[in-house]
Design a protein around this nucleic acid. Structure first.
Length: 271
DNA sequence: AGAGGTACCTGGCAGC
DNA sequence: TGCTGCCAGGTACCTC
């Protein structure tokens, strides 16, 4: 479900409700997620104040004085703030109740998500150490992308989806930024020119930040922390639009599997 | 080191 | 209506 804009939207949505508040109670109904929810989570965060919530790649970081709760939404996860918690539904795996009576509820049907606890600085956690730059910061530049792409025989699409290259570019926004850049997703990364990298870097930034502005993309059932959908879906040019007319050149948009993931592009204007 | 494939899990949908 | 097969927004981990 969530790509970077959805995770960012979730962080921004929940933070004002719970940052600065202390945890009153924790309920873990299902600990079998991508990794087991650690036994010590409840005792570690109960009565601790949540200082703030930040994001690294698609990981949400909940900063407490004594450590950090790391949350990932996987493919199907979501978080909501509940003012008057209803009875937990199926797949509502974790509830964290705060001293202002608000409840943070983690829901994840496929259980590819995770809720972890670390007392290290979170950036030193094994899952975060190998991550590339954040796409929406100045650390992600076209010069960097060009250098990384040299000698890479993999496709451009797989290259930009590689978390060690740049984080936060998932399946939807990979197709979209390649379309805006007029680059074929299957082209070898090492065949990108400097100019291509400039265009692609800029378009990755534009696509992701536009999606954040619109509250993320709703496919199936993604809703933000208030239970409302995102509106970026209506801005998608190629994702999920095989058979449609290309909005730029009028050719027919194609779907093709690249690296086991469905990929959409226009054979007319992407080279 | 890089590339490719597998695994984790459930729900929704198309097709029969 | 009910079954089967396929697909889905992520990514760690394994092998070659």
């Amino acid at each position: 479900m969530p790509e970077l804009p959805e995770v960012e939207t979730s962080c921004r949505g929940i933070s004002p409700h719970i940052s600065g508040h202390s945890v009153s109670s924790v309920t873990i109904r299902q600990k079998k997620l991508r990794y087991p929810v650690p036994d010590e989570l409840e005792s570690e965060i109960t009565n601790q104040r949540l200082n703030d919530i930040t994001r690294r790649a698609k990981y949400m970081l909940f900063h407490f004085p004594n450590g950090t709760m790391i949350m990932h939404l996987g493919m199907s996860g979501s978080v909501r703030i509940l003012e008057n918690p209803t009875e937990a539904q199926k797949h509502d795996h974790v509830d964290i109740v705060f001293d202002n009576q608000k409840t943070l509820r983690f829901h994840d049907p496929r259980r590819f998500g995770m809720v972890l606890w670390t007392t290290q600085p979170p950036e030193q956690h094994a899952l975060l150490t190998k991550l590339g730059p954040e796409p929406l910061t100045d650390t992600f530049t076209s010069d960097y992308l060009f250098k990384q792409s040299r000698k890479r025989k993999t496709t451009t699409k797989q290259f930009i989806m590689d978390n060690a290259v740049v984080v936060g570019v998932g399946n939807i926004y990979a197709s979209e930024s390649l379309f805006l850049s007029s680059i074929r997703p299957g082209r070898a990364a090492m065949r990108l020119t400097r100019k291509d990298c400039e265009t692609l870097t800029q378009n990755i930034k534009t696509v992701l930040s536009d999606a954040i502005k619109q509250g993320g993309t709703t496919l199936r059932d993604f809703t933000n922390s208030e239970g409302k959908p995102g509106y970026f879906a209506q801005s998608l040019n190629v994702y999920g639009r095989a058979g449609d007319e290309c909005p730029r050149c009028g050719n027919t948009i194609k779907a093709k599997v690249i690296g086991q993931r469905n990929t959409f592009y226009c054979p007319g204007c992407q080279r």
